[in-house]
Design a binder for these strands. Structure first.
Lengths: 147, 147
DNA sequence: AAAATAAAGGATATTTTTGTCCTTAATTAT
DNA sequence: ATAATTAAGGACAAAAATATCCTTTATTTT
């Protein structure tokens, strides 16, 4: 469904959300290892997600690394797709027609319409935080100890 | 969602289903023009779909061309994806994890599960013929005159 | 101030996807 | 038989996606 770059972006962001905080940043080495992605390629992707006050925050130098602000945690997953310039795939025609609409539907339009809507809703309404918490329910992270 | 090659494969097959019969075959020129795809590239794709008694039938020489047997018309759209080696995308994990299952779910698994099932059902239960007929309801083809 | 650390950024390489062109093979009509 | 037509197939080209490496910049520690 998505490019590898976008898959890495999603995995990395969720991982950072789970394991980091402003006090406990994560290095690219750890992130790439954890999400099983090529390090340098992942670094480029994080650059994109970090650029101009983006989704991920970063600090250089010793003790530096990547983290997610609590504000960023509340952003919808779709924002990640947007930065990766792949949010288009959600609304796109399955047959790849540029002009496919209610007025000019492709042969699959009627059948696919409902699924498309659900996809858009899913990525729009799900926040990064929700996914991070879901993941923690299954394999608890050690970001914060539970009392 | 799918590669261009697969989009062309779907569009071409549906077009052939609508406009051709064993008595009235279509040439690559017409097909490519109709579905707005590069001719030679589309030819390669039709070769794939034609190979070893595949979905599309073809005959060389004058009066030759491509057509769909009535048996092929009844095949599910998923068969096209299979030939294009992209039926995998339907069942694939959204985050691209190789091992994502009920037992080892990715963070999006629960949320995406239902949509994935609908996608599989859609491509499995919809036949080429159904799409061709849907399309004809909107823009009637001239394959057979209506009395 | 110097050294060490970690992300940012540029340049380049590799692989895959997309696309084109030309020749070959099969079939039909002359 | 020969010529014409049309798909099959091979070789190659271009573009995009994926991946690596090296240098630079910011920050902290010594």
């Amino acid at each position: 469904m998505f490019s590898k770059a976008t898959e890495y972006a999603l995995r990395a962001t969720i991982y950072i959300a789970r394991k980091s905080s402003e006090e406990n940043k994560l290095g690219i080495e750890e992130i790439a290892k954890a999400i099983n992605s090529p390090k340098s390629f992942t670094a480029k992707i994080l650059q994109k997600l970090t650029a101009n006050n983006g989704i991920i925050s970063s600090v250089r130098g010793p003790g530096g690394g990547f983290y997610l602000s609590s504000k960023a945690q509340k952003r919808p997953v779709r924002d990640i797709l947007h930065v990766m310039e792949e949010d288009g795939v959600l609304g796109k025609c399955v047959l790849g027609l540029k002009k496919c609409s209610e007025a000019m539907p492709c042969p699959m339009h009627a059948e696919y319409k409902g699924i498309k809507q659900q996809l858009i809703q899913l990525f729009e309404h799900t926040t990064i935080q929700q996914l991070a918490r879901d993941a923690d329910k299954i394999i608890p992270s050690n970001k914060q100890g539970r009392h």
